[in-house]
Amino acid sequence: MSSDFEGYEQDFAVLTAEITNKIARVPRLPPDEKKQMVANVEKQLEEAKELLEQMDLEVREIPPQSRGMYSNRMRSYKQEMGKLETDFKRSRIAYSDEVRNELLGDDGNSSENQLIKLREERAHLLDNTERLERSSRRLEAGYQIAVETEQIGQEMLENLSHDREKIQRARERLRETDANLGKSSRVLTGMLRR
């Protein structure tokens, strides 16, 4: 089961990386390519949502005692999906601003300079946003590893506790056996002396 989930995870990671790359490119493309890229990103966002639904179904089939780790992962993937959709909306707004400026025929030199400056600022903001997202994904992955490590450590402590109890019971039995052997030895020694 977890191999299916991990396969979906890999597909989701590849798809979201492609989407992030395309979202960053949308504001910088010529108008005809932008329209095509926007449609392409919308389609890929739908595919990503479908992958999340498949992953969610897989998590529901996991036994409750093992489900926690996968549920945490799902939460982070859903957050990532929300961020992608927000970034896409921002990218489309930048796209629509440029289209509006083209339709209004803002050909003035100062307007053009402002538009170039705004494009550069938006591109810079998108680059920074992308870096932040990568960093937050790394942090989330680190957090997931920490949670999983903690769960494994807790299981190991429980196993060690059970093992200690078994060893203590075995010691008690050995002591009892040793005491019984000592009594038997004294009884036999006493009988042999008679």
Rank of each mutant, 00 (worst) to 15 (best):
N128W: 07
A13C: 03
P63Y: 01
L15K: 06
E50M: 07
Q65Y: 05
R134K: 10
S71W: 02
Q168T: 14
D127F: 07
H124K: 11
D56M: 02
N72P: 00
P31D: 14
L15S: 02
H124R: 09
Q65W: 04
A123S: 12
E148G: 14
P27T: 11
V187W: 06
Y70P: 00
Y70W: 06
E61G: 01
V14R: 11
E165D: 09
T86E: 14
L174H: 03
E46Y: 04
V147Q: 05
F12E: 05
E33W: 04
A179E: 12
M156S: 05
L104C: 02
V41P: 07
M191F: 09
G105N: 09
L15N: 02
S2C: 03
V38F: 04
T129L: 07
D32S: 06
K166H: 11
Y70R: 05
R75D: 13
V26F: 03
T177A: 06
L115M: 12
N21D: 11
L160Y: 07
V38H: 04
T149K: 09
G7P: 00
G82V: 12
L118D: 14
S2L: 14
L192G: 01
K78I: 12
A17T: 04
A123K: 02
L160N: 13
I145V: 09
E18F: 14
Q79A: 15
K89T: 10
R138P: 00
D87L: 15
R67A: 09
S135Q: 14
M81Y: 12
L188S: 09
L160T: 02
M55C: 01
I93R: 08
D127P: 06
E53F: 08
R171G: 00
K183M: 03
T86A: 14
Q44N: 13
Y95M: 13
L160R: 08
Q10H: 08
D56H: 12
R90F: 10
E155M: 04
E130H: 09
E85M: 10
E150K: 10
A48C: 04
Q114A: 03
L45G: 01
N40Q: 13
K34C: 14
R73D: 07
I152V: 14
Y95W: 10
G142S: 12
A170H: 01
D97T: 13
D87P: 00
E176N: 05
H162T: 12
L157G: 08
T149A: 10
M74Q: 08
E47H: 10
V187K: 11
L188V: 13
D163S: 13
R119Y: 02
G68W: 05
G142L: 06
K183F: 02
I93C: 04
N159Y: 01
E33Y: 08
Q79V: 05
D56V: 00
E133W: 01
R171Q: 11
G105K: 06
D97A: 12
E98Y: 00
E121V: 14
I116D: 15
R67D: 03
E58K: 12
Q79E: 15
T177N: 03
E158P: 00
E120G: 08
K89M: 12
L125D: 15
L132Q: 09
R28A: 15
S136M: 10
R122L: 12
A39Q: 11
H124N: 13
R138L: 11
R169G: 00
L181H: 01
L45Q: 08
K89Y: 13
V59E: 08
G105D: 12
E85K: 13
R175D: 09
S161D: 13
A24W: 02
N113F: 11
L125F: 13
R60C: 06
L126N: 04
T129Q: 07
R173S: 04
K35T: 15
V14Y: 07
